[in-house]
Every structure is written in C-alpha cells, then in structure tokens.
Design a protein around this nucleic acid. Sequence first.
DNA 1: AAGGTGACCGGCC
DNA 2: TGGCCGGCCACCT
Length: 110
Amino acid sequence: MTNSNDNFFEKVYAVARQIPYGKVTSYGAIAKALGTARSARMVGWAMNAAHNLEDVPAHRVVNRKGLLTGKHHFEGTNLMQQLLESEGIIVVENKIIDFEKHFWQPEMGL
DNA sequence: AAGGTGACCGGCC
DNA sequence: TGGCCGGCCACCT
C-alpha cells in the first residue's frame, strides 16, 4: 500500500461510501461508475484494502450474482452476512435473496 | 521491467 | 443458478 491516495482506490472508496443503508451493489457496477467497467476485478482488490476502513461498507458490495464472495475476507465467516441481514437484506447460503431488489446503482454525480 | 495474481464479468451450455 | 473459459486491468514482488 505505498500510498492510500491512489486515485483509483479513492474513487472506489468514494462510491462505496455512497451505498445507502439496506442497499447492495456489485463490483462491476462500481467499476462501471468509475468508467472502468473492465476493471471490476480491481474494484474487488480495492475493497480488500477498503474493508479496513470503517468508512467503506464493503459488506454491501457483492458480485453480480449476489453472492457474498468477499465474506471470506472478513474477520469471521458470517460477519458480512450478519451485517447485511441487520440492514434488512436476506442472505441464505452466502447468497442475497432478491438481490436485484436491493441492488443500488452507484453514481459519481451523486 | 516482467510475470503472477485476483472480493470479477460476460458468454455459452 | 451453476460450472467452465477467456479477457481485462491495475496492484504487488
């Protein structure tokens, strides 16, 4: 982590912080909002460092299938799921129920 | 400088 | 939805 002021990471953090309570989004959606839809993987990488920041609700970010792929990187094994369920999001088998219903499209101009 | 890696995505079956 | 394959892009060693 040489510098946490990397533009790319900053942008990812900025968007992640915009995620409203009880809402979730996908890495690709964030990547697209940044203009780098192909760098969806990078978004996940950024989240890896972002999950250390309390300002970045990484638990609200899942893959396009609504699977809690990143829960493995959290402290416990069900912490991410716990947080999501606490926000009214139903999670079964590491998968978000009605993912599309809770889906939130990030916007840089917001 | 080059190569390896990854919390992905989209297409196809 | 799930599994498999290929591509893309920035980060790390």
